[in-house]
Design a protein around this nucleic acid. Structure first.
Length: 183
DNA sequence: ATGACGATGCACT
DNA sequence: GTGCATCGTCATG
């Protein structure tokens, strides 16, 4: 994965990520759902300025931003965008590699539920704050490009209250591994 | 099928 | 003290 991949408008990054295979220590799958969070977006963690938690969002593109959600879950973002302080939340994968490791971490075997949601995905791939700020072009991360041009769908982002109508959630059309259907 | 709610950490007012 | 970029379980249609 070339770091220049992330150096373009963040919605383009969110769209371009669909179909890529993301692996962490060899475990992962095909990205089927993402959300874009711009600089200046009231729903973005960077909106109120730089803090200890969101520092990675203000760093260079092509790094991970990992945060804890609702006190329980870890969520993985890719820092990107030509603007500063933007990121793409990785929301769902179609599991392809390391199914046994994912099933063990999640204590669940149904491939439809292993990585269908940002918290589930992070748990299945073993992502924690230890990876916050880490470069995405090095181990433990590895990438495989899409095999074709994926068919995309878009809709409002999930679980937010501000800028809730903006269609900045992107998915792989027809995928059975989404966190929720697109309407 | 859809909806309510509790668990749990921490940034921020 | 409040509010989350969530998930699992339990309840009802």
């Amino acid at each position: 994965m070339d770091p220049a991949f992330f150096d373009r408008p963040v919605l383009d990054v969110a769209r371009a990520l669909i179909g890529w295979t993301l692996l962490v220590d060899g475990v992962g799958g095909v990205i089927v759902e993402t959300e874009a969070y711009h600089a200046g977006d009231p729903a973005a963690h960077s909106y109120a300025g730089r803090t200890v938690r969101n520092a990675a969002m203000f760093g260079p593109p092509g790094r991970a931003y990992v945060y804890r959600s609702y006190g329980l879950h870890w969520c993985l973002n890719v820092v990107g965008g030509a603007e500063e302080a933007a990121a793409v939340l990785i929301r769902a994968l179609e599991p392809t590699d390391g199914l046994a490791a994912m099933a063990e971490r999640r204590a669940l075997a149904d491939p439809r539920l292993l990585c269908a949601g940002p918290g589930r995905l992070a748990q299945a791939l073993g992502i924690t704050a230890a990876l916050d700020g880490a470069r995405l072009d090095r181990a433990p991360f590895a990438w495989r490009p899409p095999t074709g041009a994926p068919d995309l769908v878009a809709g409002p982002r999930i679980g937010i209250t501000r800028a809730a109508d903006e269609p900045w959630r992107v998915g792989l059309a027809g995928s059975r591994y989404l966190s929720r259907r697109f309407r």
